[in-house]
Design a protein around this nucleic acid. Structure first.
Lengths: 350, 350
DNA sequence: CCGTATTATGGTAACGATACCACAGAAACA
DNA sequence: TGTTTCTGTGGTATCGTTACCATAATACGG
């Protein structure tokens, strides 16, 4: 009964348009119009200096006349270069990551690479499945957040044989390149800073993601060792927000923490803590000192201005992009472990 | 001189491995091992219910034995479904957009679609070139921020013949579907709210992106019409931050704006303004009332708590994803203009 | 037990680009 | 002028997958 259709199909094929034709303009159409071979059009687009000026002119006219634009899927398949870079972050809802990615995109903009985004929600399992999914797009490189990955994740990444940049942390054993800062050192540095300022009654309001936990651990250890101080601890979830900061400090205060200094594991938490302290009428920093982490844009402008730990997200995002591009282009990357450092910005809350 | 190489190549080809072989496991390898045809493996992956259980079992063993994972570039090329959705935002550094994208990704996670990210930096030109680049990846759908696009952009998008969702605004003439809220109505509603509260001395600290300018215009018009009030105006850049909020309010106060109410075009600006007011010892809201926009997580917890205009980024992100998926799957989308509305949350700063 | 509907599988030809090699003609050199 | 290098271009095969059609095998109803 569908004989008619079949013969139609056959006719269509004879006429040169296949059953699966999409109607969209292809490189071939441009080539025909410009009266050159497809490969020359391809060269005109990708290596124009290898094509004679007159030919180039004819081709670019044909391109604009047909409204052609390339199909990067086909290009990626044939050239084994997808011109895609995957970026995997815990969550974009945390503005420090959003900012890093923003700088990362900026740096990539004019390189012909585009960013494939994935969120893990701080879960290693989800990271693993995300990595598998993302690798099936054959990205030319991948940006990861953190240095802690499941065995399978590492295996997949190594097997993919593409540049990998890990960020937000340091490790002596990166998969490929790591760009970040030491969370141990931050824990220690903040502890020592507070000791030097003379604080002896110290608490911490901390998120519970891996990196925050490391900072908290070293912070607590350092204070125990150097000042024989027992730290009052209040852990909140991985995802932090203003409310959790208020609640975290409230928890400390309601459980006997009087006056002293509190290290908050993010500026968001610190800002919440600040509000809670003010709501309770505590004098800052005389009765309660607060130090945050991240140097978010608002940190310099809270009232009083927030003391915080600063690290440069612009440098991290940009250098991550540069490292990936360098690796992709086969340039040697001399350092595979880049410490961007951090600093403590003393403002008015300590 | 390279005859030897040629004959090597020929030999290699005879042996079945071509010059361009990549070494990676393909569907064919799996098919051979499972002793079925490639197309059956493809079906086993994409429509497992169409394959006999025993065959399925053999294939999935072959897959895990070989460590195969699919090449989505090839898949996309052959099936004309890239399973890619492009998301274009002004900047991820603005947390309201980052959040929207986060919810958007969440909703898409288990659908097999992934997000290709692009930032326009609030520039229409950059949006245009970004759209062209992105479309060359043949995404199955695209999310845009705002409803104002260049002619070329519109032409490209319509030509691409894929679902398009515009967000963050409303328009009677969407390209395809629009999900957002009315910036005119916000300008009017905030003006009326302040009038009803009895304020007669009113200022505005506003960003200068399209949507903020529309809100500002209607705000000013409404106050002129209904209260015969001349609004003190302080415009800042497109990208807002805390500092600009302080400076914006300072500008107003230094130019003769005494006591009254100020509408800030984002909570970020409002927070900065709040700090500036406090630094100057102004009583809030008695001497200076402030209303923001966005209901950022911290807005409920500033001290005093910030009155603001709220709209639901979760709903916007999620519904945008759902609309795109529905369109892609050919389901009818009844409404092509979805107003998610907004509300004024009265807290302590007004 | 036969004809029909359904299920499971395969062969072949795309999808739209680039890699690889070959080669003609121009330019450079002896 | 003859030889060699360089420049510009094209032919063909391929990248790894799926669409389309065909067909064998099985189930089903009377």
């Amino acid at each position: 009964m569908n004989y008619t259709e079949n013969s139609n199909d056959a006719k269509r094929r004879e006429l040169g348009s296949s059953t699966r034709a999409t109607g969209s303009v292809t490189l071939n159409d441009v080539a025909k119009l410009a009266d050159v071979s497809p490969i020359t059009v391809s060269r005109a687009i990708n290596q124009p200096n290898k094509v004679a000026p007159k030919t180039l002119e004819r081709i670019s006219q044909a391109i604009s006349r047909t409204g052609y634009f390339p199909n990067q899927l086909a290009s990626g398949l044939a050239s084994r270069r997808s011109h895609l870079i995957a970026a995997i972050v815990p969550t974009m809802a945390n503005s420090v990551h959003a900012e890093t990615i923003s700088f990362f995109c900026d740096r990539l903009r004019d390189s012909g690479y585009q960013v494939l985004l994935g969120e893990t929600g701080y879960s290693e399992d989800q990271e693993e499945s995300l990595i598998a999914t993302v690798l099936s797009r054959r990205p030319d490189g991948i940006l990861l957040t953190g240095t802690s990955h499941s065995k399978t994740s590492r295996r997949l990444l190594i097997g993919a044989d593409i540049p990998v940049v890990e960020t937000w942390d340091l490790t002596p054993t990166p998969i490929d390149v790591v760009i970040g800062f030491s969370h141990q050192h931050i824990g220690q540095a903040v502890a020592e800073y507070l000791l030097n300022k003379g604080y002896r009654h110290i608490g911490i309001v901390s998120a519970s993601d891996n990196r925050a936990k490391i900072r908290a651990r070293v912070f607590i250890e350092t204070l125990a060792r150097h000042g024989n101080i027992e730290v009052a601890v209040s852990f909140v979830s991985e995802l932090t927000n203003f409310r959790l900061g208020r609640e975290g400090l409230a928890h400390l205060l309601d459980n006997g923490f009087g006056e002293g200094a509190v290290f908050c594991s993010s500026d968001t938490l610190a800002q919440g803590a600040l509000a809670e302290a003010q709501a309770r009428g505590l004098l800052i920093p005389d009765q309660l000192a607060i130090i945050g982490l991240g140097d978010q844009p608002y940190a310099a402008h809270t009232y009083p201005a927030l003391t915080t730990v600063r690290f440069d997200r612009e440098i991290m995002g940009r250098r991550a992009a540069e490292a990936l591009l360098a690796r992709i282009n086969g340039e040697p990357v001399t350092e595979n472990c880049i410490d961007i450092g951090f600093s403590i910005l003393e403002r008015e809350t300590t």
